[in-house]
Amino acid sequence: MAEILQILILGLALGGVIALMGSGLSLVFGVMRIVNLAHPSLIIAGAYITYWAFKLLGVDPIVMLPVASVIMAAIGVLLYRLMLERQTKSAKYSEMTVLLTFALAMVVEGALGGLFTNTQRIVSPDYATDAFFIGDLFIPKGQLYAGIVSLTIIVGLTLFLKYSRLGYAIRATTQNREAAELLGVNVNFISVLAFAIGIGLAGAAGSLVSFVFSFFPAKHGEWIAMLMSVVVLGGMGSILGTVVAALFLSVIAAFVGAWIGATWSTLTFFVALFLILLVRPQGLFGEKPEMA
């Protein structure tokens, strides 16, 4: 029983971080219908910002989180303006944005590799290697803090989307872009804002990831499959779905890792993605896709 509880705790703590990693991807898809394949590479960029701030200036990763978020959000605005805005009227919008964000992921990987090499990095504040002990159970402080901060950010995001005027506009644009425009929402501004928030969330996730997982520029290839499975299971565009799916799959992966073998743990996400697309492509909270 203690073992099951232990695995559950570890799975949930990691699930919180993965939920934050996926929430930006989900938000951007929901509002703009962009499958941002560069999202994990931008998380890694956020992790590098945090890494260097820690290494050079000794800034704690959690303290660095808002700074990394703002820097990445600003980069998000630039990327949108330079790369995606001109595609909004394209007849091949979906295809173009997939190709562009894939290319962006490659560029970011190449740039980070060129600047910082492909050496594995991890930020090591004191709490990252410490743990709380409750009887036979241990809770790694780093994962616990990251999980709590992640879920706090997601709750904040949810409250913002639910109650603020801009949140209403974002939700409305997600559900019916044309209707939102007809009711006075400047959907272009909302798209920029949503993309900036999405990439800002990537920056925040990067700060937390920096002391939870080791990272290097090419790591995004593994993470995109993991995040896609979370976002697809949750229902593309649903933040709540992303959180539920991240917690669920992380717990499953933790059990697989503990009972079958650590190398099989990551495979949980890939198998889940495959099965979801076969059985319930709209995910838990998404809309059923229209049949051709």
Partner: peptide, 15 residues
């Protein structure tokens, strides 16, 4: 042009 996952009151608020 409604927002299907918003309540009637939220749709009116968007109006």
């Amino acid at each position: 042009a409604l927002f299907p996952k918003m309540t009637v009151r939220e749709n009116l608020r968007m109006g």
